[in-house]
């Protein structure tokens, strides 16, 4: 067995909150640069220039890329041979790190304690933590701060199995068109197909953690990702919804077994500030 101290988890989460909010992955930067080269709209090209300039400034100064430093979403993979020590749960340790990181990093606190009474919790907790067990002696945490503008444009549909592949494609494209300028295009589109009502949404969010230069390992879904990207970029929405040929930087699809009566499809929208960063213990 391997022992990991929860205080160490808190400390790494504190740093992760600050770093992930000021730095885009090289895959996102490359996708933005490529889009800048091929974008047909002059306004769109100017917007992509500003987005790239913003990324440079944010990284240089460790300044937040966006004022919406998001809901703190974590994906935790806990090894079967790991013992967590130091009191409380993994979630408690993560929440302590989030509270410290958002305070020390001058990040915006965007969480209200109740959806209807709406009083700010003051420290951006609680985080959402998705915990899965994996073989081995490691703990891996991926932090993905999720902004409200793009999250609000996400949708889920319980399609009929007869709707099939066409139904899924139509729902994804329709979601992007309805969202228009609101999720801050160019977007990344996470698509979860199958599972249950709740699990499809989880898959859609998990898909957003993948690199933009990756493809689903199943050739069928890899082809679907490429087809959806082309369809989405034909909508004309473009950078910031002002028209153009770059509506999305990528479409990432995850699929899962589902019930004979069901075809759940979830679309999780992600703005161009596609932030996520991992830490391994």
């Amino acid at each position: 067995m391997r022992t990991i101290q929860l205080s160490e988890v808190t400390d790494r989460v504190r740093k992760l909150c600050q770093q992930a909010n000021s730095e885009l992955g090289d895959d996102v930067i490359n996708a933005l640069r490529k889009a800048r080269e091929v974008e047909e709209s002059p306004t769109g090209r100017r917007i992509l220039d500003q987005i790239l300039e913003n990324a440079r400034i944010a990284k240089d100064r460790t300044a937040p890329l966006c004022q919406d430093t998001g809901f703190a979403v974590f994906f935790a993979e806990l090894g079967t041979e790991v013992v967590l020590e130091g009191g409380g749960t993994l979630k408690d340790a993560i929440n302590r790190g989030v509270a410290q990181g958002y305070k020390e990093g001058f990040l915006r606190k965007s969480i209200v304690s109740d959806p209807l009474n709406r009083v700010n919790t003051g420290d951006n907790t609680p985080a959402v933590v998705h915990l899965t067990q994996v073989p081995g002696g490691r703990l891996t945490l991926t932090f993905a701060p999720k902004g409200g503008g793009s999250e609000n444009m996400s949708r889920l549909a319980m399609l009929k199995p007869a709707d099939g592949l066409e139904g899924v494609k139509n729902f994804v494209v329709e979601t992007v068109e309805k969202a228009g300028a609101n999720p801050c295009p160019p977007i990344v589109v996470g698509v979860g197909i199958g599972g249950t009502f709740d699990y499809s949404a989880y898959l859609a969010k998990k898909a957003l953690l993948r690199r933009l230069d990756s493809r689903n390992p199943d050739p069928f879904y890899a082809k679907l990702e490429e087809e959806l990207l082309e369809l989405v970029n034909r909508t004309g929405v473009g950078p910031q919804g002002l028209g153009g040929t770059t509506t999305a930087l990528g479409v990432l699809v995850e699929a899962h077994p589902c019930h004979i009566a069901s075809l759940p499809v979830a679309v999780n929208m992600q703005c161009h500030s596609a932030r996520h960063m991992s830490a391994s213990f």
Partner: peptide, 12 residues
């Protein structure tokens, strides 16, 4: 409209 997600640039 200003560019959404360009918060560090706009601060300048």
């Amino acid at each position: 409209t200003a560019v959404g997600g360009a918060g560090a640039l706009i601060a300048d």
